[in-house]
Design a protein around this nucleic acid. Structure first.
Length: 582
DNA sequence: GCCGTTTTCGGCCCGACTGTTTTCAGTCG
């Protein structure tokens, strides 16, 4: 996958151009860098499908940049970038990673002191050379030293699941401050991105004079190890966990505008501000203005409405067509957590799960669900005691017994018989067809040989999908966020096969999986491929993860109709099972 | 370098905070 590599090169080009004061061209490259970062489909595949023209369809990509992408695909390099690097051989990406250092300062450091690398920067700072430069001073030098220190100990972006917990803890503390009307999370956490860089928190206060006390208690939270900035309305800190948190304080009449601004995404905001500008309006984080007069701002709903747009849910705010859709009144009604009627992937103490079938059933009933599917591993996963045909049938008896007890208690609830059947290397399934035939719903998943080349891996997957008993492919790409790359799969072919066969693809809600990714989900939705959102619970408490899967589905523009486990049980059987074209 | 319901040329989101300076450039989001 070369998208990330191209993204990095364009980001560096952007920074070189910024050094040369070519700000607009720089922004053009920065924008395409973000696009490449977010594009899930391999740009090589896009190129193979439709050549340079197809690449130009990517937002922000024009003729010149499309040519550079083509050049990279063909030759593995971009001559323009090589020239820039040769002229000024600076390790820009490492240096800009230092908080407070940007292209202009880096340029000065290079010109005055010949600094090219992080190491040279650190040495110069520690030797006190930086403070002597014009426009630099003691503080800047200290901040550089600190910045390098933090850089060395900071790791990956945090999983949404973890960031959420941290944000909630901080919010709870801020809520206790005097004069606080409302506190909420904004930023990528509110957009429910799968990983989070910084946590953004927004607070509304009644009286402006309370602001400084709120800021004071924010920056003195016990977890704080650095204060980047502290102002009347905006402060920025770093937590022990290695995570940066911003707090912004707003008045009631600006809360909606601030929430919108702080939620992003950046590209969404830029586009929305352009929409405003076209109507002779100005949008900033304080409100929507005509001249000096505020015409909207206390709620997001009000701002979108004034601009003639439908309300755009935060998960959609990525500038990938949602603004146009909102303009045309064509936003989909996204799936909600309340729409979910059951969970179709649960591991019990028959294999590597923590709890018994009845425990999960009771928890599901509490959630108001109508069914769960029990899906322990199959025998190939010997490590966790995967079920063979015999034990699977024994488990079926326990499920029957649980259902009987629940029925006697008067619950309208059903435990369904399933399996997470291993797809072995050649695409065959791990269990015999006659055993699968006895189950209500069959899930299949890859757990081994994750490094096969794309063609082979795809062939394997398609072969498994030919099995007439398979209803769902679990965690289709097998990635683990921050740990393991997705399998190399030609997803277009997999999605096509799912469409033809009537097999559903899973959105696995486990925080470090979230597999399918949002972009693939959107392709499924466009194509009419059925989805399911499962917790992959190995414990009763994991069933709460479903909300992250729902969020991922929303980021992929999925509606209730697209998600099989948002359907009542009879429709679930009809559409997922009996409609399966065999 | 990109882009178009004012446009194929002339624009390009907007503001807070910091540090170094006497009015602002650089950085960040």
């Amino acid at each position: 996958m070369i998208n990330k590599e191209i993204a990095r090169i364009f980001r560096e080009i952007s920074e070189y151009l910024e050094m040369q004061e070519d700000s607009f061209r720089s922004k053009a490259y920065a924008r395409v860098s973000r696009t490449m970062e977010e594009t899930q489909e391999d740009v090589v595949q896009i190129y193979e499908r439709g050549g340079k023209k197809e690449i130009e369809n990517l937002p922000g990509v024009g003729k010149s940049i499309a040519e550079k992408i083509e050049e990279y695909i063909k030759t593995g390099r971009i001559a323009y970038f090589e020239e820039l690097k040769q002229k000024e051989p600076i390790d820009i990406s490492s240096l800009t990673a230092v908080e407070g250092l940007g292209p202009k300062k880096i340029k000065k450091l290079y010109n005055e002191l010949g600094i090219k690398t992080l190491n040279e920067l650190e040495v110069a700072a520690k030797e006190g050379k930086i403070r002597k430069l014009a426009d630099f001073g003691d503080k800047t030098e200290q901040n550089i030293i600190k910045g390098i220190q933090f850089l060395k100990q900071s790791g990956n972006r945090l999983l949404l699941g973890s960031a959420y917990i941290i944000a909630e803890e901080i919010i709870a503390k801020i809520k206790q401050c005097k004069g606080i009307e409302q506190v909420g999370v904004a930023g990528s956490a509110r957009r429910m991105k799968e990983t989070i860089g910084d946590i953004d928190i927004l607070a509304m206060i009644e009286k402006p004079e309370d602001a400084s006390a709120v800021m004071e208690s924010f920056v003195s939270l016990p977890e704080v190890i650095n204060i980047y900035s502290k102002g009347a309305t905006k402060s920025s800190i770093r937590l022990k966990e290695g995570m940066n948190v911003d707090l912004r304080i707003l008045s009631q009449k600006s809360y909606g505008a601030g929430l919108m601004y702080f939620t992003g995404s950046k590209d969404h905001n830029i586009e929305i501000r352009k929409v405003a500008a076209k109507q002779g309006l100005k949008l900033n984080e304080y409100g929507l203005f005509r001249g000096n007069k505020q015409v909207a701002g206390d709620s997001e709903e009000q701002i979108y409405e004034y601009l003639g747009l439908q309300f755009i849910p935060p998960e959609m705010r990525e500038n990938t067509g949602e603004i146009k859709a909102a303009m045309d009144n064509k936003l989909p009604r996204l799936i909600k957590e309340e729409d979910i009627m059951g969970d179709l992937q649960i591991q019990t103490n028959w294999t590597d799960g923590e709890h018994a079938i009845m425990d999960y059933a009771e928890a599901a009933i509490k959630k108001g669900w109508q069914y769960i599917l029990i899906t322990d591993h199959s025998k190939r996963l010997a490590m966790v005691g995967g079920l063979d045909e015999k034990r699977l049938r024994e488990q079926g008896k326990e499920i029957d017994a649980v259902n009987k007890i629940l029925a006697n208690k008067g619950y309208n609830f059903k435990v369904l018989k399933g399996i997470e059947c291993d797809i072995i290397k050649d695409g065959e399934l791990d269990l015999a067809d006659d055993a699968l035939a006895e189950l209500d719903i069959v899930g299949a998943a890859v757990h081994s040989y994750l490094n096969l080349p794309a063609a082979l891996q795809t062939e394997r997957m398609l072969k498994a999908m030919e099995n007439r008993y398979v209803n769902i492919i679990f965690h289709p790409t097998a990635r683990i966020i921050n740990q393991r790359r997705a399998m190399e799969l030609q997803m277009d072919l997999v999605i096509e096969a799912a469409f033809k066969s009537g097999i559903a693809l899973e959105i696995n809600a486990y925080p470090d999986r979230l597999d399918l990714k949002d972009e693939y989900i959107r392709k499924c939705v466009e194509k009419g491929v059925k989805l399911v959102i499962n917790s992959d619970a190995h414990s009763v408490r994991h069933m709460d993860y479903l909300k992250f899967g729902v969020a991922q589905a929303r980021r992929g523009w999925a509606k209730r109709e697209d998600v099989a486990n948002a359907w009542p049980i009879d429709k679930l059987f009809k559409k997922l099972k009996n409609d399966r074209k065999r």
